[in-house]
């Protein structure tokens, strides 16, 4: 049976969590270990750390962070952002990440997906895809660099290729919905879920607990990822799971 995952996403730079973390009772709102432990306690099924460090000089601090999280928090976590080479993936996995997520560099050089899957297995190779509805409405286009750079590549074709190459999971973000709080792009989520037979995590646009439910019931996603609704203390992961459970979505009890 499918058991939907609830996945808080944390942006990190220089080994610190940034952007609007607003938990009550934290000693240090930027400490990734403390935040990860908090989400673990609330019942988060996994965590995603998105490294937005601009300079590759500071990768060492990200690796240190991954090591500290892995030593303290015993739920799965993914590290994405700035994974450009097999060696980048290796260093994150060695440090204790369970999965690495590749995005821009995989579109630029799809062999990276094959290499990571061949070396470490499909289970740790997540392909993150940022997609946007074409202006004429004829499907979705892959965007790079956080939604700034169009590629002309069809999103459904790209996810199919990524899975063929060994991606074990798709982390799908709608650039039309990201930051809008209007809910997931359900059509996009459903189309991607129909295009591949690996788990799909829906992302982008969550503004309410009902949106999380829809990602699974309407979109067909295996998991739902959200940032702001958890970070700002609007909702806890436990509340998200209660809402999903009440709507008939099977989840691990918080």
């Amino acid at each position: 049976m499918n058991v939907a995952r609830v996945i808080p996403c944390l942006d990190v730079t220089d080994g610190r969590v940034v952007k609007g973390i607003n938990f009550v009772g934290l000693r240090d709102a930027g400490d990734p270990v403390e935040l990860a432990a908090r989400y673990d306690t609330e019942g988060a099924d996994e965590l995603v750390f998105l490294d937005i460090t601009a300079s590759s000089d500071n990768r060492r601090t990200t690796i240190d962070m991954v090591e500290r999280v892995a030593a303290e928090v015993f739920i799965p976590f993914t590290v994405g952002g700035g994974i450009r080479t097999l060696e980048d993936a290796r260093s994150m996995l060695r440090a204790g990440a369970d999965k690495v997520s590749v995005n821009t560099s995989a579109v630029q050089r799809p062999e990276l997906v094959s290499e990571i899957a061949a070396e470490f297995g499909v289970q740790c190779c997540v392909c993150a895809v940022d997609a946007k509805l074409r202006v004429n409405g004829s499907g979705w286009e892959v965007f790079l660099n956080g939604g700034r750079t169009p590629t002309g590549i069809d999103a459904l074709e790209w996810v199919a290729e990524a899975v063929t190459r060994g991606a074990g999971e798709i982390l799908l973000t709608s650039m039309d919905r990201d930051g809008t709080r209007e809910g997931f792009d359900i059509d996009l989520t459903r189309a991607v879920c129909d295009a591949v037979n690996v788990p799909v995590i829906a992302s982008g646009g969550v503004g309410s607990l009902g949106h999380l439910v829809e990602g699974v019931t309407l979109g067909g996603a295996s998991g739902v990822l959200a940032a702001s609704i958890f970070h700002f203390g609007e909702h806890t992961v436990a509340q998200a799971k209660a809402a999903m459970s009440a709507a008939g979505v099977r989840v691990r009890p918080a």
């Binding site: 058991v3 939907a4 995952r5 099924d45 289970q123 690996v198 788990p199 295996s222």
Partner: peptide, 9 residues
């Protein structure tokens, strides 16, 4: 869907 990548009882 494969892998089974989830919590289960």
């Amino acid at each position: 869907r494969k892998p089974q990548m989830q919590w289960n009882e």
